[in-house]
Structures are given as C-alpha cells and as structure tokens.
Write a protein that binds this DNA or RNA. Structure first.
Length: 562
RNA sequence: CGGGGCGUGGCGCAGCCUGGUAGCGCGCACCGUUCGGGUCGGUGAGGUCCCCGGUUCGAAUCCGGGCGCCCCGACCA
C-alpha cells in the first residue's frame, strides 16, 4: 500500500523535545521510527522499507563472496557463555526459563555459531566456509542515545568465517573487506575503513568502518590516504621551538607550579617544551614513568599496547614513595623505568626535579636519563601524515571486521583433524554491520534544512507522485495514472492522494525525501505534464515530464539522480 | 556508575515559586472557505496533570519515596 491516504506515515512538524541528533529528529519527524522505551524503537512502515533496502544490499554482497545465510536464535542457554568467560558481561541480558535454567539473550553470536561448528566440523575437508545472519541483538547498554544510533535492541548482520589456519583467515578477511567496501559504496555512504584497536577480545587485527557525521560517537583522524580511529592513530607532531639543552640540567625554583601551564608561564617556555610525567603501574612491569610533550595527551589505548599489558595510573602514595612529590616529578635521577613518547625530539626540556617546588630545565633525554621509546600520545589537529595535516572528525561505526583467531574455538572445542590426523583449532573471523546505523548515518550525511534526502539505493520509495487536486479532480486522476504506469515499470512509488493543501504536501515530500518527486497540478496539466524535482539539492527538472511516456522520461532522468 | 534536566490531551509547551473551576499552539472531527509552499473562520472531541504516600477543608502546585525519559561524562566484546 503506497497511497499516502492509507499509509501509516506519521510526519511531525516538530522534532521530539528530547532529540539532539539530526538523524534522531528527522527519522521521527519523517515517520520512520517511534520510541517504545529507552533504547527501544519500532520501525514504522517507511523506516522498515529503508532498513530492508540496506539488508538486501548487504545480503547480495555477502552472497557474492559465498557466505551462507542462516538464522540463529536470540534466546540461548547460558552455558557456552560461561565457557568463553563472557557470562559476566554487564551488557548481557540474563534470565531463567520456567525450569530455572540460566539463559541469555544473545548480544552477538560467536558462542552460538561456534557451538554448531564444534559439533558439525570434523575434518579439514569441511573447511573453509562462512556463515551470516540478520538477527536481533540485545545489549543492556548503560546509555542508549541518539535515536537509533545506540540502542538496547537492534538488528545486526553478523558473519563468521571458519578456516583451518591463519592464512585462511587472512584470505577470508580480505574478501570481507572487499565486500564491505562494495556495501557502503552501494549504500551511498561516505565511509572509511580504519585500523582499530583489538580491545579486550584480543585477536589478530581489526578494522572499523566509520561514517563521518555530526552525531558520531567516535573520532577519526583523516588525511589524504590515511584514516584511523584516534584511539590508535599515529601522526607526525607539529614541531616545537626549543632551546638547546644546557650543559647540565639547571635546577629552578617553581613554587606552587604543579601544572604544565603554571610551569610554562613561570619559565616562559612553550608548553611543548615541557615533558609531562605520567607514572603508571603496568601488569607484570611495575611502575613505569611515561613522558609525553607538555602539549600532548597520553592515549590510554596506545599506551596499553606499547606497554604490552593493561595498566593503571599510579597512586599518590606510590608516586611519593618511589619518585618524588606529585606535581614535581621527573625522569632525572629517578629510579624508575622511563617510556618516552616518539614525539619528544631533541632539545632542552623542562621536567620536574623530584623535590618540592623545583623543576629542571635544559634536560636532554638520553644524556640525563635513559628511556625506552614508544608512540603513546593522542594525535591532535595539526599533526601531519605524509606531510598532510590531519583533521579529526566525529564518525559513527557502521561495521567492523575482526580476526578472532582461536579465541572462541578453544573454549568451545571447535576443532578439526588435519591431513595427518592431528586435532587443530578452527581459525575464526567475525564481521558485523548495523543496518540501522547505516540508515541513520545516511540521514545525517545527506539531509538538508528541508529534511531527509535519501540516496536512490536506500530510499523507502523511488518516486513520490504528488497530486495537488482533491478527490475526484483531474489532477488526482492523472496522478493515479502516472502512479500505475511507474509501478508497472518497476519503480517503487508513493502517491500523495490526500486532500490537503499544496504546502503541506510539499513539506512532507521533502521531509520524507524520496529521490524524485513528480507534481501534478493545474499548472503542470496546462503545460501538458508533471513537474519533476530531484530531492538532492531540490533541483527542478527543466520541462518536467510528459503525461504520455512518463516511464521513458523518468528512465531518462533516473541514472543522473543520486 | 558520576553530573545535570524533564515527566501536564497525539506532538510542542504554559501553569507549580505564592495550593482554590486544567490552559495555549499544532494536530484530530464536523461545517463553510481556500486551492501551487504547512489557507482562513466557526463548532467540537480528547487529560488517571508519571506512580504511591503525606500535609491540608482543598494538591498539577508543598513534603517524602519510587518509576520513567533525555543530555554530558565513564563504559561500549
């Protein structure tokens, strides 16, 4: 049913009072989604059409790389989650069935799929293969937000690959990376594949697919030929004008100057000429003094990777006992291992003197203290990659791919026998896409002040035919005819056959955002046709389209419409 | 989990401070009007004022407790 007079398409003039994000406001206003509870949303008919468009693109591209679609349940026994150590995750919804057995609502399906593979795969002859499904995920998020961008229940396409070894996994991974590029491209989304942190899942490598948009939750560092999550990004730091090192560190009185800014002001030194001393305690390594330039910030993820272990910041007492008075600590003369950030260059730096109210200046790394190097700082706007300054943009993660290795096959016993009859663990990869996020990101990226401007690939309907006449009018009769002909030609068409003023109809059409609008009114009928307007950019098509031969005329316009 | 805010017809809000008949705009229904950018006029329907308890002759309003929702941060397998 695509007559607006009968369609449940509740458009609103005003956005919900509590909406912040553009996509949240517009998707509600355009009648695509409606909230049920915190992080819980109903997809109304128009919204669901868009969601299914995305699903179908994903499905076609995955089928094209020989992935096999199946469907696993949402509700499952807790047992496999205990075995993988993930039962304790706070976001996991836990419940009991009537017999008192522990159950969970799957937040992802590694456990489920691996249990099957453990049972079904016997031999290297059974490998490799890959499976995927579109299934609801349940996650008890601490803070759902921004409409459909971060919810407690959502549909995810999750895929899993199964190989006999690492080389097989690498191949599968590359095939998926290719499919993902094609998917986001077909969706008309601006999207970057960025190196990402493997996080607590461990694993052997991961990429995130990031769609830049204002409502994004992640920050991505971008330069020509470069894109990375700021969590792991590396770049060349802007240089700092530094004095040469003094023949020996000079002790200077800096009463009460416990912050970088205090010291820089007092000593008239650029902030980048100070070294910030950050004492941390790393698992298995003990106390480590991390040094970054005064104008830089320690990146905790990069630091953990550089240390090769999780860490925590040192406590005041530990600092006092092992190094010096907090606020005045430094590497010189301290009996502590030093990790020096890569961005620290040559020159005479200012560091804490390890005694109250004093700093040292003219300090030269290497001469005055020994150190280990590491890239542990967060990149900043103005840093460069390959000579190009980077920008940092917010982005929404619309997909990810992840080399799991044997993270799940080991605890769940997914093994096969190789040619020699030796039992081996299956090597796995996992690959996610959130269709709802693609929808929201598309709205964010392409909307204008009038509303949503769908790309052809995602639009709920290809064409909206607007009749400006009331019931029984010639305008409506003509609009009906165009509608029938275009439908018969294979277009998805929405007909605005409501009794209403032109203003309201145009406003709704622009809000809902179908790529092409045909308008049938008295004016256009006198000109012998229907007016045509491309939604993106609101470009009027010169001369409109004729009443006889609309299908041909639209077919002519269609390829040029974004 | 820390911080802030909000719950009053479908939506957006006022009223609360200073207790006394529950209001406005939009939307909706009907009549007329208009008919190429959210027409105009009239009539009308629609509300447990989030819930429970307390104070009071009387509570949307004051007090206590609870629930829900949003935003910022933390978190995000």
């Amino acid at each position: 049913m695509t007559r607006l007079s009968q369609l449940l398409l509740p458009t609103e003039r005003e956005p919900p009072a509590d909406a912040e994000a553009l996509s949240h406001k517009l998707m509600v206003r355009a009648g695509l989604i409606r909230q049920v509870g915190s992080g819980l949303w109903t997809w109304l008919p128009a919204g669901w059409r868009v969601h299914r468009k995305v699903e179908q693109i994903v499905r076609e591209e995955l089928d094209a790389i020989d992935a096999q679609e199946l469907l696993m349940p949402l509700l499952m026994p807790a047992e496999p989650w205990r075995r993988t150590g993930r039962y304790e995750i706070d976001e996991l919804f836990k419940l009991k069935d009537r017999k008192g057995a522990d159950m969970v609502l799957a937040m992802t399906h590694e456990e489920c799929v691996t249990v099957h593979v453990a049972q079904l795969v016997r031999s290297y002859r059974d490998l490799p293969f890959s499976l995927y499904h579109f299934q609801t995920k349940e996650r008890d998020e601490p803070r759902p937000r921004a409409g459909v961008l971060r919810t407690r229940e959502f549909i995810m396409k999750d895929a899993y690959t199964f190989d006999r070894d690492r080389a097989g996994l690498e191949q599968h991974y590359e095939r998926y990376a290719g499919a993902y590029d094609r998917i986001f491209d077909r969706c008309g989304l601006e999207c970057y594949s960025v190196q990402s942190d493997v996080g607590m899942m461990g694993g052997f490598g991961a990429h995130e697919y990031m769609a830049p948009c204002g409502a994004g939750e992640n920050d991505v560092a971008l330069a020509p030929g470069y894109a990375a999550n700021v969590e792991v990004a590396s770049a060349e730091a802007q240089p700092v004008e530094l004095p040469a090192p003094l023949p020996a560190p000079e002790r200077v009185h800096t009463p009460g100057a416990t912050t970088i800014d205090d010291v820089a002001r007092l000593l008239r030194t650029p902030v980048g000429g100070l070294l910030k001393s950050v004492p941390v305690v790393a698992d298995g390594r003990g106390l480590v003094l991390v040094l970054v330039r005064g104008d830089h910030r320690v990146n905790e993820i990069k630091l953990a990777n550089a240390l090769g272990a999780p860490f925590r910041f040192a406590l005041e007492d530990e600092i006092r006992d092992r190094i010096g008075p907090p606020g005045f600590i430094g590497p010189v003369g301290a009996n502590v291992h030093v990790l020096l950030d890569d961005a620290v260059g040559d020159g005479g730096y200012v560091v804490g003197a390890n005694e109250p109210d004093h700093h040292l200046r003219g300090v030269q790394p290497g001469r005055d203290f020994t150190f280990e190097r590491g890239d542990v700082r967060s990149v900043e706007v103005g840093d460069t990659v390959g000579g190009h300054p980077i920008t940092i943009e917010p982005a929404i993660e619309v997909g990810n791919i992840f080399k799991l290795g044997t993270r799940f096959s080991e605890p769940l016993g997914a093994t096969y026998l190789d040619e020699s009859g030796t039992e081996q663990f299956v090597w796995m990869g996992c690959y996610g896409i959130g269709p709802a996020r693609i929808v929201a990101a598309s709205v964010e990226q392409l909307a204008d002040e009038k509303g949503i401007a769908w790309p052809k690939a995602l639009a709920p309907w290809d064409i909206e035919v607007v009749s400006l006449g009331k019931a029984g009018s010639e305008e409506l009769a003509v609009a009906e005819r165009l509608y029938e002909e275009l439908c018969a030609a294979g277009y998805e068409v929405l007909l605005d056959d409501r009794d209403g003023g032109p203003g309201a109809k145009f406003a709704d059409a622009e809000l809902v955002g179908c790529p092409l609008r045909l308008t049938v009114g008295r004016r256009s009928l006198q000109a012998g046709g229907a007016e045509a307007q491309v939604r993106r950019g609101l470009r009027d098509v010169e001369g409109g389209v004729p009443l006889d031969g609309v299908v041909e005329a639209v077919a002519g316009l269609w390829p040029a419409i974004p």
